[in-house]
Design a binder for these strands. Sequence first.
DNA 1: AAGACGAAAGTGGTTGA
DNA 2: TCAACAACTTTCGTCTT
Length: 306
Amino acid sequence: MKSGKITKCPNCGSKDLYWDRKRGEVICKKCGLVIEDKVIDFSQEWREFSDQGESKRRVGSPLTYTKHDKGLSTKIGKSGDLSKMSPSEKRMYYRMKKWQTRISTPIERNLKFALAELKRVASFLDVPKIAEEDAAMIYRMAAEKGLVRGRSMESVVAGALYASCRRHGVPRTLDEISNAFPLDKKEIGKTYRFICRELRIRILPTSPQDYVQRFASELHLKPKTVSRAVEIIKKANKLEITSGKGPMGIAAAALYVAALLCGEKKTQRDVADVAGVTEVTIRNRYKELLEKLKLEDQIKKIREKA
DNA sequence: AAGACGAAAGTGGTTGA
DNA sequence: TCAACAACTTTCGTCTT
């Protein structure tokens, strides 16, 4: 186990820390402070679970949140060789049994279905394991706070998944997620916001750059065009014409412009479709981009050529 | 005929009194 | 709690290629 394990936020003192494994950062959920870069401690659990007066220590590799019993049931009785276990393993074994008995509680039963649904959708959408895990954790917290009551289980799963994707910089649009559920975008968005508010989850606004890569590959654009689009977005960021605007609209417009400049012309319709925005939005962003980045002349030249 | 452009009216969420 | 507000959408008519 590594030394220097962090349990408290040096800024606000909150113990509610969130470990972003993908980025290797520990983030305080309360104040958003990034506490340490490059955490390599893979055996640490980042959040304690209320286990009723028991020792809160954990032994062994991290438990998974994607199983309703945290992945314990698959292990119980597998080897069956208690005598060969070390004392710490024995302790874990008994704890696992304890968890297994909890499956009968309503919350655990609900979790069982919810996590099965999550798994199905996550694989359908190719969501990375980390984000799926986190979504499971969010759902569990929501369930324990009784936030599922009065809402459909699916919408909470969808909301949790969306929140987790946002938190991990996994660019999945609300549209894509809603396609995997028998729900509409509005309801998922609503639940998503509700969950974030109730669980105090801090979500950073997504950057247009997160979307560029994916939209571009769907449009079969060349890498050169993609980097051009990213360049455009960076400039736009500097000029502060991106704040408050929908990131997908900006990503779409940047790609549209970049495609024009690189001779890979796509129609506004094409770009709008993959980005999940309308042509009108692209036009608006496009106009702003041309104005502020002084690209009008370049575009004109290309128009004349064609 | 298809694509680009823009005006006008409507939607859902945020904000601030 | 309600009204103002910004971003975005829908719809539709008009140009341009």
